[in-house]
């Protein structure tokens, strides 16, 4: 049997997960210029919210997913409002913001582990109940189809939003020059708050989809963050479509890289790609 179609399918699926993280990371990075590590834990927050409301409370899946996405967004907004924004006002360095976000990441991850234990959990009720599709020789599950669709919709939606709406223009202005944005009357703090909400909600959605696809654990955010950030840097830090392109490239390189070697090498391949880009094209594919 030819394995190439399946590898292509796997590449696209992985690339789509990374896309969700990378574009939302880049959205926030663009507006704030700081390395928001807490972004990773938003995936676990979304996933555990669905676990709680869907599986434990028994709400319908769609309602639970909606709540999960909103909670992730809300927590992102709160972090900005009560931690990052006060730090920005005090003109804290990027390093101080990074350390603060690392702290928030650790605290939130620990809270999830305390409330839900660190065991693996599933969001679905049984194994093998998912519908699968065969596309050109590759097998892809229903959840995986949703992951790909979500990545496409989110990327296209964000690009439209930034380019065509007035709010989007204000976001780009803030990303370009925060100080000048202020003196021309843009409420930069409000804009950044909304960006945190949107970006965190997208990360939450990614965590939920990963949860339905495989399983969830409190530390799931770290590896997703690393892959998303590698994709963001490879594609072009701060750029939406750069993030998407970087994510897709990372998905393909990882999955084609392990054709002949053990799949444990995936992460090493990802870091190898990152290092190659940092040396030869540090500003990423789209050169930001």
């Amino acid at each position: 049997m030819d394995i190439i179609p399946q590898i292509i399918a796997n590449s696209i699926i992985a690339g789509s997960v990374y896309t969700l993280i990378a574009v939302s990371f880049n959205l926030i990075y663009g507006a704030t210029k700081f390395f928001n590590i807490t972004h990773g834990v938003m995936t676990a927050i979304g996933a555990y919210a669905v676990f709680f409301f869907g599986k434990q409370m028994g709400l319908s899946v769609w309602v639970a997913v909606l709540i999960g996405v909103l909670i992730a967004g809300m927590i992102g907004w709160l972090l900005d409002r009560f931690i990052y924004r006060p730090l920005r006002e005090k003109k804290a360095s990027q390093l101080a913001l990074l350390v603060a976000s690392l702290g928030a990441f650790t605290v939130l991850q620990a809270l999830i582990a305390i409330i839900f234990t660190s065991r693996f959990q599933t969001l679905t009720h049984g194994v093998g109940v998912q519908k699968t599709f065969e596309i050109a020789g590759g097998i892809i599950t229903q959840t995986q189809v949703l992951i790909v669709i979500a990545a496409l919709v989110v990327t296209a939606g964000l690009m439209f939003f930034l380019k065509c709406t007035r709010f989007g223009k204000a976001v780009r202005a803030v990303s370009d020059d925060n100080e000048v944005s202020k003196i021309i009357g843009i409420n930069t703090d409000r804009i950044i708050g909304i960006i945190f909400f949107i970006g965190s909600a997208i990360a939450g959605l990614a965590g939920i989809l990963v949860g339905f696809d495989t399983a969830i654990e409190p530390t799931m955010g770290l590896v997703l963050l690393l892959k998303g950030v590698i994709a963001a840097i490879v594609g072009g830090i701060g750029s939406i479509y750069g993030g998407a392109i970087g994510a897709l490239l990372l998905g393909f390189v990882e999955n084609f890289g392990i054709i002949k070697i053990a799949s444990e090498w995936k992460d090493a391949i990802a870091f190898g790609l990152l290092i190659l880009f940092l040396i030869f094209r540090p500003r990423g594919i789209v050169r930001t």
Binding site: R166, F167, K169, I184, I186
Partner: peptide, 13 residues
């Protein structure tokens, strides 16, 4: 255009 944006963020969304 960005200068002419409504000051109310939500209505400009």
């Amino acid at each position: 255009m960005v200068v002419l944006t409504k000051r109310n963020v939500f209505s400009a969304l």
